[in-house]
Amino acid sequence: MALATYALLCFGSLFSIVDPFAALPVFLALVGAQPPEAQRRTALRAAVTLLVLLLTFGLAGTLIFKFFGITLSAFKIAGGIVLFGLGLEMMRAKDSDLRSTEAERTEAETKEDVGVIPLGIPLLSGPGAIATTMVLVGKAEGPAQHAAIFMAIGAVALITFLVLRSAPVVARVLGRTGINLIGRIMGLILAALAMQFILDGIREAFPKIIG
């Protein structure tokens, strides 16, 4: 796969699964009443948490596979199934428990600092984002493509910070309908990506049966 194609795949995949626009309602519910400076600090902590977690799993992905004896093809199939379910829920404009459960959202309302939990983890960098990162790292060929996935993670984290920092303005411009529309488009992209992961995993697991 060409470097430019792989880089676009990484950015598009990660941006679709992180989907900072879907986090806007939760972000505003938790910190919307706080001063702008406090909202900016929370947005920064959430974005940094996203960056650190995905970079960690991206760097340690191969070691995790070896430690547990998991093949990349098996992880692609399992990750694809998880992402497909999340994509379907996004297309139905539903809050997925894969991102955060109702209990976690309720508990977060009593916390003073929500930037790390639940915004950074698991709302932005939940199981779906982690699985996508590890699959993409497994697909990388050579140092250039490995660098591309880490740059994509950085770009997504930066955009996430900018979106959350401007949450009141973005939410007012888009409205709930606009946010749901973006979520449905991201869900469709994510579902298609998930199916590609599953097909790639099956093809790699059974190369003699599926050419």
Rank of each mutant, 00 (worst) to 15 (best):
G85Q: 11
F68M: 06
T160I: 14
P122N: 05
G175N: 14
S13D: 02
L119W: 05
G120L: 13
L59F: 15
E107L: 04
H146G: 10
T132C: 15
A22N: 05
I81S: 13
S96A: 00
D95L: 09
G32N: 00
A23Q: 01
A191M: 13
D200W: 11
A108K: 08
T5P: 15
L53A: 11
A140S: 12
E204R: 10
D19P: 04
R45I: 14
R105K: 07
A2P: 12
L53H: 05
F15A: 07
M195F: 13
L30M: 07
R203N: 12
T101S: 09
A171G: 02
G58N: 11
F150L: 12
D19F: 00
G69L: 12
M91A: 04
V52W: 03
G32A: 03
V116F: 07
I121R: 03
G32T: 01
G201N: 00
A78I: 10
A205E: 06
P36Q: 03
A74R: 13
S13H: 10
G154N: 14
G80K: 02
Y6E: 09
A2W: 09
A78F: 13
V31A: 04
L174N: 01
F75A: 13
G61W: 10
F68I: 07
G126Q: 03
G154Q: 13
A152H: 12
R172N: 09
